[in-house]
Design a protein around this nucleic acid. Structure first.
Length: 479
RNA sequence: GCUCCGGUGGUGUAGCCUGGACAAACAUAACGGCCUUUCGAGCCGUUGAUCCCGGGUUCAAAUCCCGGCCGGAGCACCA
């Protein structure tokens, strides 16, 4: 910390997909750390691979939205695809210095040599030749795979993956931002290392999978006489259920398995957001896990518990009758009105009124299939907020009659409390479940007064986020 | 080839660096109770762990050291 006059952290994603829960760890840690020291949080798009892992144009904006949603809006934003000239300048400088060389060996051949710790024939050629070759790379003399700039390291380094690592290569696929303007692109370790210095990054917080990269990049810093930032390697996260891998997600979308990047089965922030997981919950989760190097497996139960804490006080309560089945009440001599609070702890929010008007002593209700199937003749249950009933028959129709007693009585008798709606009142609704299945049902009309995006609790069903109102669709969050 | 990490109640983690108030914490699950109204939320409570095994150091070890077994992760013209 004393080495730097300002704390500057950075998050550097490849815009080849949106952010997922695993990214949230470094993001929140970086952002939190910068904030703590009144520093700067940088977003740097590492879009230097038009061939493999090509950037997806929409993802630049998507990532920014993910960050804003997480409450980690960057103070500065950079695009590596705008900085090619800078990387070229350093490449040329390193070549001149003899700290780097252009290797034209076939990859397999080079591999054989470095595995034995031996230099390839290119390595010790004079800088002039390498500068020539470099111009050749830029000018199109070499095709993809025919030449690569390597940074000199220690050929005897115990880890072969560190030996003379590649820094720039030819990649000719058009880039979504700069088209075919460039044909030589830096590899991760090169552009990342240079930018961290150029952007005066003081603390690098990144996944542990980059530990070897830190070793590689230090060689470059030594060549250039730079001082390497502080590094904190955090362990990878995995989600108990929910796919995080960008390539798998992409394949699944292309194959039609997933509806999109926000498919509820995925661990992307988009998906979590759509399911009603709140950014506060994610933040709490990440701060709870902390900046350790250990891998952590996140369980859905824990996310749900954290989220429930955030969402419970906000969520108004409604009835959602899943797979509705008719229930006929006979022998009801007066009309009734159920008054249920929108939120039991917040009476000021008001009540939901549900009227039941018997015709000739009969009233038709709708109850959830799950409840209907369990009822047996003679069984007593309480219709929440309305009355207690006893089942007369289940065949051919589910029929019950009122019995005396209030909810206290019902509780005393250990009756099940079930939710219900008068026939004809419910609005057609659909709830998308975490496995992407859809449950059809009815919601009470008052629920349409909520806004799209708000979180509600369907009593005895679970918390859900209203996705759209016109056709009423909600995404299930958790119990 | 090389590197890294982990093994703590049914589950997911914290604690280990800086040994002692750890007769082990948090969450979740299960179970029970409460609630002028959610048998599935909320609130309160209960159950539940010989801290992977063996040895060593120490007055004292989940924590340090050695050995073993088991499991996971990462890198090599992707980022």
């Amino acid at each position: 910390m004393d080495r730097f006059d300002e704390v500057r952290t950075r998050f550097a994603p490849n815009p080849d997909g949106p952010l997922h829960l695993g990214n949230a760890r470094p993001v929140i840690l970086c952002h939190e750390y910068a904030k703590m020291y009144d520093g700067t949080f940088i977003l740097r798009y590492e879009d230097t691979s038009p061939d493999v892992k090509a950037p997806i144009p929409e993802m630049y904006e998507a990532i920014m939205e993910d960050l804003k949603w997480l409450g980690a809006e960057p103070d500065e934003v950079y695009y590596q695809s705008d900085r090619l000239e800078l990387y070229y300048r350093y490449a040329r400088m390193l070549l001149e210095m003899g700290a780097a060389y252009v290797c034209t060996c076939p990859p397999e051949r080079f591999r054989e040599l470095y595995m034995r710790g031996e230099p390839c024939p290119c390595r010790d050629l004079p800088p002039e030749i390498h500068l020539d070759r470099w111009e050749g790379m830029l000018g199109g003399l070499y095709r993809k795979g025919e030449a690569v700039v390597r940074i000199k390291t220690d050929l005897k380094h115990p880890n072969p993956a560190v030996r003379d690592w590649p820094a720039l290569r030819v990649a000719t696929a058009p880039h979504p931002r700069v088209g075919t303007r460039y044909r030589v692109w830096p590899l991760y370790n090169f552009s990342c290392a240079i930018d961290d210095h150029e952007m005066r990054v003081s603390h690098i917080i990144r996944g542990k999978e980059h530990e070897v990269n830190t070793v590689r990049q230090r060689y470059l810093y030594n060549h250039l006489g730079w001082e390497y930032p502080e590094v904190l390697s955090v362990g990878r996260l995995s989600l108990e259920a929910g796919v995080l891998s960008k390539s798998k997600i992409r394949a699944g979308i292309e194959a039609g398995t997933y509806m999109g990047w926000d498919d509820p089965r995925l661990g992307t922030l988009m998906a979590l957001r759509r399911r009603g997981i709140q950014p506060e919950a994610i933040r709490m989760l990440m701060l709870e896990i902390g900046p350790k190097g250990v891998e952590a497996r996140i369980s859905w139960d824990n996310i749900a518990a954290l989220n429930r804490r955030v969402v419970e006080p906000r969520a108004n309560r409604y009835f959602f009758i899943e797979n509705p089945k008719p229930l006929r009440i006979v022998g009801l001599d007066k009309s009734l009105e159920a008054r249920l609070p929108l939120h039991p702890d917040h009476p000021e929010r008001g009540v939901r009124r549900l009227r039941v008007e018997p015709k000739d002593g009969v009233v038709e209700l709708q109850i959830a299939e799950r409840d209907a199937e369990r009822l047996r003749p003679g069984e007593k249950v309480r219709l929440m907020g309305l009355m207690n009933i006893e089942v007369r028959e289940t065949e051919p129709n589910l029929e019950a009659e009122p019995i005396p007693g209030d909810h206290l009585e019902a509780r005393r008798m250990g009756l099940a409390f079930i939710h219900w709606l008068p026939k004809g009142l419910g609005v057609e609704a659909e709830v998308v479940m975490p496995d992407a299945s859809r449950i059809k049902g009815l919601v009470e009309p008052l629920c349409l007064k909520e806004e799209a995006g708000s979180i509600v609790q369907f009593e005895r069903f679970g918390f859900a986020r209203i996705d759209s109102l016109k056709p009423f669709v909600a995404y299930y969050a958790h119990r």
